[in-house]
Design a protein around this nucleic acid. Structure first.
Lengths: 190, 190
DNA sequence: GCAAGTAAGACAGCTTCGTTGACTTGCCTC
DNA sequence: GAGGCAAGTCAACGAAGCTGTCTTACTTGC
């Protein structure tokens, strides 16, 4: 889902913009172990889009101020939470090409937000980490989103959060799920 | 969160790329009506990113085949589920500028996927809808994502889905929530 | 009936962020 | 020492955002 953009809504007014009800047989009679009517799935698509759009958008003010883009934010986010990350690991997380990353990462290094250090075991690698300024910026960006996250979790309540995680986990590709496991049976080597 | 991109992961290998544990006081003792430790929130950010990235990516094969992009998909999606949508309503949903939309929408009209018709009550408006070809394409795109959605919902189970919705709803801006209400107390006028 | 405001679209130009392919350098592993 | 992987670089391109200004057609309110 391409990044929802950053325009100020030209007409935010009042819209009664709910999705039209789908004209299907009203619950295919017996089909429903789970209410997987198409309309439900489409609603999920909408909600994921809106949530992503708005959570993302919450950090824009900070980014604009510094002349950075959302791509920079993503890099700061991942480098921040996974210090010693290598370039190719980062590429795999973001799922973009080396060239796309190079521009963004280069800018962050040039501005003194990110550090590179040759890997100790494998000196071809560049292990990435945040500088002090990088940590500070990442924190500002995080804070900008934090309120929204906290409010959503708190309003929804504990069991809802548990369900939220379960579903999101199922939406991810199987080989990515290991990155967000609750139980940290981590082993030493990378 | 800018659109996750469409590159083939250059090195998808094996990474033990979990986020590093945050060194904080291990659960601020009594603070937790809800486990809102920072680490939990960061995990949510990761999961939302990955889920969005992968759900979005599921439709790419179809889009590539037709030389369309994710922006086209978003337009087809919203026009498909909200027939008679006006241009400014669509702008409000996508949160992009008129010019950005014009390019994408223009392409879809030129290729015969989307129709415009002057509004009956207000003839300045152009109400959008899908042509037969547009409906067919939108369906193909939907099917490409459906499997993933169904699997996630089914694995997670009913209560989890309910929680998933509650949290997503809380992440959205308040004035967008009305668009995804379960109870349709819709009124006639738009 | 006219003025003001709104919906849509067009033109011009820019930026960000994605893409490809080819090539180099350094380093590890066998 | 050969082969292969990690990283970086150059060149060129394309998609999809953004800005601001302007026109046209239409509605609405006075």
């Amino acid at each position: 889902m391409p990044t929802p953009a950053r325009a100020t809504p030209p007409s935010r007014s009042d819209p009664a913009l709910r999705p039209a009800p789908v004209e299907t047989a009203p619950n295919p009679a017996g089909a429903g172990l789970l209410f997987l009517r198409e309309e439900q799935l489409r609603l999920a698509q909408d909600m994921i889009f809106f949530a992503y759009r708005d959570l993302t958008g919450a950090a824009d003010a900070v980014l604009d101020e510094l002349g950075l883009g959302r791509a920079h934010h993503r890099v700061l986010h991942f480098v921040g939470s996974r210090p010693e990350l290598t370039v190719s690991e980062l590429l795999g997380l973001l799922r973009i090409t080396k060239q796309s990353l190079a521009r963004v990462l280069g800018a962050l290094i040039a501005r003194g937000y990110v550090l590179q250090a040759r890997g100790a075991r494998d000196r071809r690698q560049r292990r990435l980490s945040l500088t002090e300024a990088g940590r500070a910026l990442e924190r500002r960006l995080f804070e900008a989103q934090r309120e929204r996250l906290v409010a959503a979790y708190r309003e929804a309540g504990g069991p809802a959060v548990e369900g939220f995680r379960r579903v999101l986990r199922g939406l991810m590709e199987t080989d990515t799920r290991g990155l967000v496991e609750p139980e940290p049976n981590r082993d030493a080597r990378r």
